[in-house]
Amino acid sequence: MRPQRDSVLALVELMERKAPECLDLFTAQTDEEFEAAFDALLEKAVRHLEKNKVNFSRLNEVGLSAVLAGSLSIPGLSVTQETHSNGHVDISVDAYFCSPARTKLGEAKVYDGPKRHVEGLDQLLGRYTTGREGRGLLIEYFKKKNIKGLVEKLREAMDTDLPLKQKGACQDHKLKWSFITTHRHDSGEELDVGHIGCNLHVGEPGDE
């Protein structure tokens, strides 16, 4: 059967071609199903950034998050951003096709050490999150080299300090250079936050 060109069938086939995980996401019935599908979509968007990092080398966190938003958005799933003067970018993920609709909040910034990372986490958990949203998102664009070592140091610092009522040590994330923390929130809920590393280091000639 040849699908009608303007039909739901044609739209779903377009989405499936972009990423089958879109359909996993829209049909998710549990938080776990939704997060698993979103992680898969996010991984593709992060890989797109990393693959084209030379082209994006001049972009700041706003420009980089804009590329991420363009990669992730598809009818039923919108990714938007609000810029703040302190170098942070608020990201909002709205899956408005899901029933019930699901929202994720995030922060994005160029990595500048554990202290600045925790400031971003504070902003995410303290100011914007109500406790109703899904797992939070903290995206770090690493322009420095050795993302592996930097993420390990960041995890160690967080495991030592347990900032923002962090409950226990960092957990592994499905994505590379990424991890998950759990925090006691003022709402009484325990909220997970995914810390996502994106390797945008562009080596200079003579770089070791």
């Binding site: 377009l14 009818p75 919108s78």
Partner: peptide, 14 residues
Amino acid sequence: PHDVLAVIALLSEP
């Protein structure tokens, strides 16, 4: 066509 779909997605966001 996914760039077009991305634009439609954002403009259709409630």
